[in-house]
């Protein structure tokens, strides 16, 4: 099996992700990560903000559709987010641009 075939196989996953980018697919309570004031799992719905930020977030694996865990909720300030196996520290500007939905 070539890499491309492998990649195609996982496209269903990518589709699922893309669906979530449209906000109406994010049902239930959702809002910016900076406003989420409880520890626990969240699903990322959308990344707003400028192009650079979106790209930087994407390269760190903060993508719509991904599940993440808030380790240190700090309403209105930075927070620790466990995603893709790593722990990210995000400041207020960044976390207010990440729209999440609690799981």
């Amino acid at each position: 099996m070539t890499l491309k075939d492998l990649n195609k196989k996982c496209r269903c996953l990518a589709k699922k992700v893309q669906q979530c980018t449209v906000s109406q697919h994010c049902v239930g309570q959702h809002g910016p990560l900076s406003e989420t004031c409880h520890a626990g799992k969240v699903k990322i719905c959308k990344i707003t903000g400028d192009r650079k930020l979106c790209a930087r977030m994407a390269s760190l694996g903060v993508l719509a559709g991904e599940e993440a865990e808030i380790i240190c909720p700090k309403k209105g300030s930075q927070c620790l987010l466990k995603i893709q196996g790593g722990t990210l520290s995000l400041d207020h500007t960044t976390s207010s641009n990440i729209i999440v939905q609690s799981v």
């Binding site: 890499l3 492998l6 990649n7 196989k9 996982c10 496209r11 996953l13 990518a14 992700v17 893309q18 980018t21 449209v22 959308k46 990344i47 192009r51 979106c54 790209a55 977030m57 994407a58 390269s59 694996g61 993508l63 719509a64 559709g65 893709q84």
Partner: peptide, 24 residues
């Protein structure tokens, strides 16, 4: 159509590619 930039889409597919490998 999807409210994403190409770079986010590319990153998404790269992660998808990695997941597909790990899941094997």
């Amino acid at each position: 159509t999807m409210e994403v930039y190409p770079e986010s889409m590319i990153a998404d597919h790269r992660y998808g590619f990695i997941k597909s490998i790990i899941r094997q």
